[in-house]
Design a protein around this nucleic acid. Sequence first.
DNA 1: AATATTCATCGTAATTTTACGATGAATATG
DNA 2: CATATTCATCGTAAAATTACGATGAATATT
Lengths: 112, 112
Amino acid sequence: MNMGASKTSEYTEKEIALANYAKALSHPARIAILNLLVKKQACICGDIVDELPLSQSTVSQHLIKLKEAGLIKGDIDGASVCYCIDEKEWKKAMSQMGELFQTLLTNKSKCC
Amino acid sequence: MNMGASKTSEYTEKEIALANYAKALSHPARIAILNLLVKKQACICGDIVDELPLSQSTVSQHLIKLKEAGLIKGDIDGASVCYCIDEKEWKKAMSQMGELFQTLLTNKSKCC
DNA sequence: AATATTCATCGTAATTTTACGATGAATATG
DNA sequence: CATATTCATCGTAAAATTACGATGAATATT
């Protein structure tokens, strides 16, 4: 009965893109992971696992989500791995978020 | 077996707050609703329903989520209703998002 | 070659999210 | 008072998310 299916096609590209960035940031573990990536200057999944109350496989899944959203880059190279902020994509997300915030702040409704 | 339960207590207040704001913005319908609120200068649920491929009850649920996140205010007054941006809370969300983006952009990892 | 390290993937399960129609409550209109 | 309008809520169902342990693949170390 097509329930729970969001009718993606009816929204603008911009709305979908923005929602996707927000979705990537919508779990505290992923916010924590991003902060750890810069604080520890270490990009190893195992290091992140040590700092979070989550299993390795769960952290791996969160990392993959951040990667799929384009917010981080990650290249596995045998036993050594590197996950870090994708600066270009990160700036894009930042500008799109900023745009929404600005628009909604400057064009306020008059009714309340 | 406590599966699917996120161990909220292990994250900082800031991480949880930020994730909650992001969660509120993580669906294109809710982004679209926010844009409609300013574009149409109308705060009526019914007006929003007309513009989206969603039923009235579903739009109502999205509005409630935005309200619970604090991003919009809404007061029902009989048949007339008013939903609009909560400026104060909106600024708070904006500053917290901005902080994350800035931090991660300025303190980049060295490894890649 | 055997072992250790590191991360992804698979299978599984619980919870949350998304969505709809039907109904209800509250106010306004005739 | 009867009817219309407007939004929330309830019940239900499907899909997505979150999480874990176990296993696998790939490289490094001994």
